[in-house]
Structure formats: C-alpha cells, structure tokens
Amino acid sequence: SDEELKKRIEELVRRGNKDEARKLAENANSDEARKWWEKLEQL
C-alpha cells in the first residue's frame, strides 16, 4: 500500500539512505510515493 511504502521511504531517508529511498519511490510506480520522496528530500 502507499502508506506502507511512504513509511519505508521515510525510514530510509531518516537513516541517511537516500539513494535506496529514491529507488524505492521510483520503482513503486506510485505518484504518491514519488511526491512523498520529493518532499522528504527537501528536508
């Protein structure tokens, strides 16, 4: 689900694993996940 995906992306970003988070968001084929990633990346 998008919610689970967003949690995983956020967790990866928090751990400093941005590349992994980006790949996850891009491969998810989910606009919501991509937007979430872009938002987190700004922080």
Rank of each mutant, 00 (worst) to 15 (best):
E26K: 05
W36A: 03
A28W: 13
R34P: 01
K39W: 14
K23L: 12
E41M: 15
E41H: 11
R14W: 04
E32N: 07
K39R: 13
I9Q: 00
E3N: 10
N29W: 09
D19F: 05
E10D: 05
E41G: 07
E41F: 14
D2W: 15
K23M: 12
R15D: 06
W36S: 01
L5V: 05
V13Y: 15
K7V: 06
E3K: 08
W37Y: 14
A21I: 03
R34W: 13
A25E: 01
L24A: 03
E41W: 14
E10V: 09
S1T: 12
N27V: 07
K35M: 10
I9M: 09
E4N: 09
L40R: 03
V13A: 03
W36Q: 02
A33D: 04
E20C: 11
R22K: 11
N29M: 12
E26M: 13
A33F: 15
N27C: 13
W37P: 01
G16Y: 01
E4I: 09
D2N: 11
A25Q: 03
N17Y: 13
A21N: 00
Q42N: 09
V13K: 02
L12D: 00
R8V: 08
E20R: 04
E4S: 09
K23S: 08
G16N: 03
Q42I: 09
R15Q: 13
E38Q: 08
E3S: 11
A33V: 15
N29Y: 07
K18F: 15
K6A: 06
W37D: 00
R15F: 06
L5P: 00
N17G: 04
W37H: 02
A25T: 04
I9G: 00
R8P: 00
E4G: 07
W36V: 03
E26D: 07
E32W: 14
L40I: 12
N29P: 07
A25N: 01
S1F: 15
K6M: 15
E10A: 10
K18V: 15
L40Y: 10
E20I: 05
D19V: 08
V13M: 15
R34T: 05
K23D: 05
D31C: 12
S30H: 04
E20S: 03
A33H: 04
E11P: 00
V13H: 10
L24Q: 02
L12P: 00
K23C: 14
L5M: 06
E26H: 07
E38K: 08
I9N: 00
K7W: 10
W37A: 04
L43N: 07
R15N: 12
W37M: 11
R22N: 02
G16F: 01
D2P: 09
R14Q: 07
R22D: 02
A21T: 00
A33E: 03
R34I: 13
R8L: 13
S1N: 12
R22Y: 05
N29C: 12
E32H: 05
K39H: 13
A33G: 04
E4D: 12
E20F: 03
R14P: 00
D31T: 08
A25I: 15
E3R: 08
N17M: 15
E26T: 06
L24S: 02
E38I: 06
K39L: 14
N27I: 09
E38H: 06
A21H: 00
K35H: 09
R14T: 05
K18Y: 15
W37C: 07
V13R: 04
E41L: 15
A33Y: 11
D2E: 12
K7L: 10
N17I: 04
N27S: 14
E38S: 06
R8Y: 05
A21V: 02
D2G: 09
D2M: 15
E26F: 11
S30P: 03
K18S: 13
E20K: 04
R8S: 03
S30W: 10
K39E: 12
I9F: 05
E20D: 06
S30T: 11
K18C: 13
E38T: 05
R8C: 12
K23H: 08
A25L: 14
L24C: 08
K18D: 05
W36N: 01
E41I: 15
R14S: 06
E41T: 15
G16H: 04
L40N: 03
D19K: 08
A28S: 14
N27H: 09
R34K: 08
D31N: 06
I9Y: 01
R34Y: 11
E11F: 05
R22G: 02
I9L: 08
E32C: 07
E11H: 07
A25D: 01
L40F: 12
L40P: 01
R22E: 03
S30K: 03
W37T: 01
L5Q: 00
E11N: 08
D2Q: 11
K35V: 09
Q42C: 12
L24R: 00
E11R: 04
S30G: 06
A33M: 15
N17D: 13
A28F: 15
W36F: 14
E32R: 05
N17S: 09
L5N: 01
D2Y: 14
Q42W: 06
L24V: 06
A33W: 14
L12H: 02
E4F: 11
D19T: 09
N17R: 14
E26N: 05
K7A: 13
S30I: 04
E41P: 03
E41Y: 12
E38P: 02
W37N: 01
N17Q: 14
R14H: 10
V13C: 12
L43S: 09
S30Y: 05
A21C: 07
G16W: 01
L24P: 00
W37V: 13
E32G: 06
E10P: 00
K39N: 10
E41Q: 15
K35S: 11
K35L: 10
E38A: 09
N29K: 12
N29D: 12
A28G: 05
K23V: 09
L43F: 10
L40A: 07
N17L: 15
A28P: 02
N29F: 09
E38G: 03
R34H: 04
A33T: 14
W36T: 01
N27L: 13
N17K: 13
K39Q: 13
E11V: 03
L5G: 00
R34S: 04
D31Y: 06
S1R: 12
S30R: 03
R22A: 06
D31S: 08
E3W: 12
L40E: 03
E20M: 08
D31A: 12
A21K: 00
K39V: 11
S1W: 15
R22V: 03
K35D: 07
K18R: 14
R14N: 06
E4P: 05
R8G: 00
A25C: 14
S30E: 03
L43H: 07
E11M: 07
D31E: 12
E11K: 02
G16V: 01
E32P: 04
R14Y: 04
E3M: 12
A33R: 04
R15I: 11
K35G: 07
Q42F: 09
E4L: 12
K39G: 06
K39M: 13
A25K: 02
D2A: 12
R15H: 08
K35F: 06
E11Q: 07
E10G: 06
N29R: 09
A28D: 03
E20P: 01
E41N: 14
L5F: 07
E3A: 11
E10K: 07
L43W: 12
I9A: 00
E11D: 12
R15K: 12
N29A: 12
L12C: 07
S30A: 04
L40C: 13
R34N: 04
E41D: 10
S1V: 13
E10M: 14
K35A: 13
I9K: 00
R14L: 12
E41V: 15
W37F: 15
E41C: 14
A28H: 05
L24N: 01
D2R: 10
N29L: 14
K39F: 13
E3V: 11
E20N: 02
E4Y: 11
S1P: 12
L40M: 11
R15S: 13
R15A: 13
K7R: 14
L5E: 01
K6H: 07
Q42G: 11
L5R: 02
G16K: 02
E20H: 04
K7F: 09
E4A: 12
E20G: 06
L12N: 01
N27R: 12
K23E: 10
K18N: 10
R22T: 03
E38M: 09
R15V: 08
K7E: 05
L43I: 11
L12Y: 02
L12R: 01
S1L: 15
K7G: 05
R14V: 05
L5A: 01
L24G: 01
R8E: 04
K6W: 15
W37K: 03
K18Q: 08
N29G: 13
D19G: 06
W36D: 00
K39S: 11
E41K: 13
L40S: 04
K6R: 11
V13E: 01
N17T: 02
D19E: 13
N27E: 13
V13D: 00
A21F: 02
D31W: 06
D31M: 08
R14E: 05
L5W: 13
E10Y: 09
N27K: 10
R8I: 11
R15L: 13
E32V: 10
A25P: 00
Q42H: 10
E10T: 12
L43Y: 10
I9V: 03
D31I: 10
W36E: 01
K18A: 10
L24K: 02
R22L: 07
